[in-house]
Design a protein around this nucleic acid. Structure first.
Length: 927
RNA sequence: GGGCGGUUAGCUCAGCUGGUCAGAGCGCCUGCCUUACAAGCAGGAGGUCGCAGGUUCGAGCCCUGCACUGCCCA
């Protein structure tokens, strides 16, 4: 075994082993058979175009820890992977490729283009999946899906048709966010808002009936005035009362438009008069609807002015048009004041192009509408799942969020939700299964491609060219991956076994995009699927997942959001190659405290690589001793290794102590993981492995491993047995966080005759808190003594290698020191221990409330340094005592504080007083 | 404009429903290559818990205001 741990030497091998041995595949249980409780997690499917970034690695680390933990608890743990076809992202990528080849998708034509995307996917689509294998994700690869798979496409189509039949999908002309570069509608969520310094222009609109009079409007977008259909003022605004119902002449055009009143208009904004341009502003669109006004589109899909804008402007880019409109208004003397104004602009989340509100015909899901067949709207169901609970038992909610505050954020959004625009003007995606009839203009929506119009029978039908929003198909995943739709009135074996899934681990950035949609669609479509026993599915079993754990965001070391444009993306694979996957996983786990973002720190990763190395070397030490044992004829029974060690009264103190510690750590880690406190679990294990197991237990156990003295053979064998058991258990405890290292050492521990094919398939150590309090007190006393002696040695300048005698004056429990003389001797380099009733005057000592200890050594102490130390300590003790006494002398405190607090503080005060006395004496003796 | 977080050691962060915590790792100082580990061992130094009030017998912890900072939504 090499002296230093080299992750590169082992990780690749295990990563391949886990996949090729198909260790984490979960078979569908045969119908009607009983099976262990299922723990099911759906992997948020990464974009097929994606590469693994630190955010993924973080999410996967947390998820994998949970999945491995649940698997080791004996549950059927299914983590289901797949990739998302990612409509816009993928199409853009392939289009860019075409550009470099000097061609375009339009030149290729739709069919050839789509085929081209498939080709791309076959060649490059698996990058992120390979990375997942490399970092040890224990997903079930046999169930891997792609959102455009035939099976899923059929399901997506079925879902669309059902929603259409239920009256929840409609087509209509609405203002949508339009990306002029992608040339498609995008959803509200795909728009990133930004503040930008702009202007607010005042424009004078002549009043038709009153020459020389103007109504001045204020606008941030003068170029859209060409599409104005009215000017609106607040009905209560007295400045404009006389103009109500009057007509204005729209400058630069010959159109006449009315002055209307609407409550929406804020009198204190601008001039209190706003132009109404329904085709280019969502608010204006709403006003136009209320007032039955027409819409005039003056821009085309590339954000150039259309013919409707008039011959002077048609063909101009929107910003060139703005310039010209302003110039023309200026020339006509109709331009008023120009003010600075900060306005919020929307940018396409994909390509950063400024989004144009555009009137267009799109497909929508009516999320607030009651279905034709009755029942709750989707949004209503989605609200109920987090609200409905048995009285006084919030844990009985069908769906819970961790951290809890996300429930509020989710509900807030769900309460204000608008209809969901699901059509995209792309070629890559699930094409909407609707056909337009050229004869009767009606629409036929069908499960199978129709040959004629369902309304008039005409054969002149053409399929809708739009595809579905990517989130429509990914929103269906919790049901579709398990075989939905089942035959009428039935279920599928996978839905029976795995739906609802147990947990969703994801980031809040896709809470609305994806989580909320899964909840709506999952509830809607699963509620008609009967339960395994044939009964009707209740709301609590319709949810796509019973819990949602929202993790934090990973940022770079300077707290900046990692993004490609900033160039501060930390490549996890590169870090993994330098430090090992385990160290990176441990870093991410230990930094994952809830609520705060993570600033990824390489320094910490370095620290955890050292931790891995520490364990590696502890293993080397153990193997060395196993080897020695074998050479001296001590055989360790292999079968004892898989058990959590048990100690009895006759075992040495360190044995009983480490066994108790292991037990309480195992118990605590179980609690931590159940609360998603990966950070606490990690630090608990770290502290145990390094602080307890290596620093104390291993050092002491060296005393027991005596291969020379045949009389001590039994004791040696017993010590080695417990050592092996403890180490083996600790490896299992650590394995969900550090799967590679623990797998390697675990196999080595068994000489490759392992009881299972992987440590991941063994059982997780269970424990109990505080299994032996008295013992812990005694062991702690021993530790304190050893630490005191070491400190004294340092103060006295005793050479590192020299052994010295010590005198101990102990209040009680002195036998602990006597009985464990050998431990003290080895760990503190002591030649003899003498228990005395008093320590000679003037000796340099260390004190605790329980004991005083003197190191007998001729070299004198650095008096000045010692005085400084003692003075400082005395001051601190005085401060503590004063604070304790202040409270203890307060009648209100004695009366109101709980007894155990009063008692505890009393003991602290007594101990402090004792220590102060000792410290004062030591100071005096120094002089 | 609305909402949600954060502010604790030089750095990165823990600190549970107020009492027994002022903590960890890294960094720093000192001494050690003690045959598992120098990616190590041992011993240290270092904080008025953002500021100001309040509640309480008692406040990093609860309340109010302020400052700085990050994010989400409009």
């Amino acid at each position: 075994m090499p002296k230093a741990y080299d992750p590169a030497a082992i990780e690749e091998r295990w990563a391949q082993y886990w996949v090729s041995e198909r260790l984490f595949e979960v078979r569908t249980p045969a119908p009607g058979t009983s099976h262990p409780r299922a723990f099911t997690i759906l992997l948020p499917p990464p974009n097929v175009t994606g590469n693994l970034h630190m955010g993924h690695m973080f999410e996967h680390t947390e998820t994998d820890i949970l999945v491995r933990w649940h698997r080791m608890l004996g549950e059927t743990a299914l983590w289901l992977p797949g990739t998302d076809h990612a409509g816009i992202a993928t199409q853009m990528l392939v289009e860019r490729q075409l550009t470099t080849e000097g061609t375009t998708r339009q030149a290729l034509g739709r069919e050839a283009f789509v085929e081209r995307v498939w080709q791309w996917r076959r060649h490059y689509g698996g990058a992120i999946l390979s990375s997942m294998k490399r970092i040890g994700d224990t997903v079930d690869w046999s169930r891997e899906y792609f959102t455009m798979d035939e099976r899923l496409s059929v399901a997506v189509r079925e879902a669309f048709v059902r929603l259409y039949e239920d009256g929840l999908i409609y087509r209509g002309a609405y203002i949508v966010n339009w990306c002029p570069r992608c040339q498609t509608a995008i959803s509200d969520l795909e728009v990133a808002h930004e503040e930008q310094q702009g202007n607010l222009w005042e424009i004078r609109y002549p009043v038709v009936a009153s020459p020389g009079e103007f109504l001045t409007v204020a606008t941030t977008r003068p170029e859209t005035m060409l599409g104005d259909v009215a000017v609106a003022v607040n009905p209560l605004d007295e400045r404009y009362t006389h103009l109500h119902g009057k007509t204005l002449r729209l400058p630069l055009t010959n159109r006449e438009i009315p002055v209307i009143t609407d409550d929406w208009v804020k009198s204190d904004f601008g001039t209190g008069a706003v132009k109404v341009t329904p085709a280019h502003d969502p608010n204006d669109f709403a006003i136009a609807q209320r007032h039955n006004l027409p819409s005039i589109s003056v821009m085309d899909e590339t954000a150039h002015m259309s013919a409707e804008a008039g011959p002077a402007y048609a063909g101009l880019d929107r910003y060139d048009a703005r310039k010209k409109v302003l110039e023309d208004l200026e020339a006509q003397g109709l331009l008023g004041a120009v003010r600075d104004h900060v306005n919020a602009i929307g940018k396409c989340a994909r390509c950063q192009t400024i989004v144009e509100p555009r009137l267009s015909t799109q497909w929508f899901v009516a999320v607030n509408k009651t279905p034709n067949k009755g029942g709750d709207s989707m949004a209503e169901m989605a609200r109920k799942v987090v609200c409905e609970a048995k009285p006084g038992d919030p844990a009985s909610k069908p769906l819970r969020f961790t951290p809890e505050n996300y429930e509020k954020i989710y509900l807030e959004w769900m309460n204000n939700i608008y209809d969901w625009c699901i059509s995209r003007q792309l070629w890559w995606g699930h094409r909407i299964p609707a056909w337009h009839c050229a004869a009767c203009k009606k629409i036929t929506v069908a499960r199978r491609d129709p040959t004629h119009c369902a309304h008039c029978g005409s054969r002149q039908i053409t399929q809708e060219t739009d595809v579905l929003d990517t989130w429509f198909s990914s929103g269906l995943l919790p049901v579709t991956v398990f075989g939905w739709p089942p035959p009428q009135g039935q279920s599928t074996p996978d839905l029976d076994a795995f739906y609802p899934t147990s947990l969703l681990v994801t980031g809040f950035d896709i809470l609305f995009f994806w989580v909320a949609r899964m909840i709506m669609l999952g509830c809607y479509f699963s509620k008609d699927v009967p339960m395994p026993d044939g009964s009707k599915r209740a709301l609590k079993d319709s949810v796509p997942f019973r819990e949602v754990y929202i993790h934090s965001l990973v940022r770079d070391a300077d707290r900046q959001k990692m993004s490609k444009t900033k160039g501060n993306v930390v490549d996890p694979v590169e870090i993994v190659e330098r430090y090992g996957t385990d160290a990176v996983r441990f870093t991410l786990a230990s930094m994952s405290s809830p609520g705060t973002d993570i600033a990824f720190s390489e320094a910490r990763t370095e620290g955890y690589r050292a931790f891995a190395n520490k364990i590696w070397n502890a293993a080397r030490f153990i193997f060395m001793n196993v080897e020695r044992a074998r050479e001296t004829g001590i055989e360790i029974d292999h079968t004892v290794r898989g058990h959590v060690p048990k100690a009895d009264e006759t075992d040495p103190i360190e044995t009983r102590w480490i066994v108790a510690r292991l037990s309480s750590v195992a118990a605590q880690v179980g609690i931590d993981l159940s609360e998603y406190r990966f950070d606490l679990a990690a630090s608990e294990i770290y502290q145990f492995f390094w602080g307890d197991f290596c620093d104390w237990y291993l050092e002491i156990v060296k005393l027991r491993l005596d291969f020379a003295d045949s009389a001590r053979k039994a004791a040696t064998k017993s010590a080695l047995t417990i050592l092996l058991q403890t180490f083996e258990s600790a490896l299992r405890l650590l394995s969900p966080i550090m799967p590679f290292l623990t797998e390697e050492l675990w196999h080595a521990l068994y000489d490759d005759e392992t009881p299972a094919r992987s440590i991941a398939l063994t059982r997780y150590p269970q424990g109990a808190a505080h299994s032996d309090d008295v013992l812990e007190i005694h062991f702690h006393l021993l530790q304190q003594l050893i630490v005191s002696v070491r400190a004294l040695r340092k103060d006295l300048g005793v050479e590192e290698k020299a052994s010295v005698p010590v005198r101990i004056r102990s209040a009680h429990d002195g036998w602990v020191f006597e009985e464990n003389f050998d431990v003290i001797q080895r760990l503190a380099r002591v030649s003899s221990v003498e228990l005395v009733s008093s320590i000679p005057e003037g000796a340099t000592i260390r004190s605790t409330p329980q004991f005083d200890v003197q190191v007998v050594y001729e070299k004198t102490i650095d008096v000045l340094a010692e005085r400084e130390r003692l003075t400082k300590e005395l001051a601190k003790l005085e401060k503590n005592l004063a604070s304790a006494e202040r409270q203890l002398s307060n009648p209100a405190f004695l009366e109101k504080a709980p007894p155990h607090v009063v008692e505890g503080l009393g003991k602290i005060a007594a101990d402090t007083r004792l220590l102060m006395e000792k410290t004062r004496k030591a100071l005096k003796d120094l002089a």
